[in-house]
């Protein structure tokens, strides 16, 4: 599987330069902005980093690598795992950089570990939902279905809970130990890998 990881590394470093630039811009803005908004500017790149596996799958589809890799001695699980590992490494890397930046310029009252645990969990949760859809329906249709599902979930959530209740729920979340968020994010990410492997195998062999 080393070959797949290396190929994904080349693709990330060559074609995701815009994302790297976005990270730099967000860091600069976070440094010069006021202390209360700083976390938001540092958390957004972490969340965006979660998108890397989707970008890789889209590039694979466009370049026909998806088909070509079928002729290489790799299993479906290896091909899917490569995307998840690359995504995880990238998210951890960005999260680490943002965390160090926050450490240097921290002014927020909420402990940094909780904030970044939440950001990390979010960065793992979003691709966990999107990647299986992309393997099942293709990147374009998968992302569209994800957005529709997100809208439906948010609509239901808003219908059931009031704004005060949601705020209270978020405050309660802050009481949960930080590692729980990270562990939950990794657990969902792992489960998503299993689903993607099953869907990828089925989609590839219609």
């Amino acid at each position: 599987m080393k070959g797949l990881l290396l190929k994904d590394y080349y693709v990330v470093t060559r074609t995701c330069k815009v994302q790297l630039l976005v990270n730099v811009v967000f860091i600069i803005v976070a440094i010069i902005t006021n202390e209360n908004d700083r976390f938001m500017f540092l958390a957004v790149p972490v969340l965006i980093a979660g998108d890397i596996p989707i970008t890789l799958i889209a590039i694979d589809e466009k370049s026909r690598w998806t088909e070509y890799s079928g002729a290489l001695p790799y299993s479906t699980a290896q091909k899917v795992l490569s995307k998840y590992i690359t995504g995880l490494i990238y998210v951890l890397l960005v999260c680490g950089i943002m965390f160090l930046t926050a450490l240097c310029f921290n002014g927020s009252e909420i402990p940094l570990t909780i904030m970044f645990s939440l950001a990390l969990a979010g960065a793992l949760l979003i691709p966990s939902l999107m990647i299986p859809l992309c393997y099942k329906f293709g990147v374009n249709n998968g992302m569209l279905i994800f957005l529709i599902l997100l809208f439906i979930i948010m609509f239901i959530f808003q219908s059931i809970f009031s704004t005060e209740e949601i705020s209270a729920l978020l405050l309660k979340c802050a009481e949960i130990p930080a590692p729980i968020f990270v562990l939950a994010g990794i657990a969902v990410y792992g489960a998503s890998f299993g689903i993607s492997t099953a869907l990828g195998a089925v989609r590839g062999k219609k």
Partner: peptide
């Protein structure tokens, strides 16, 4: 279509 990503 060979199927190799453009950047390689």
């Amino acid at each position: 279509e060979v199927g190799i990503p453009d950047c390689l």
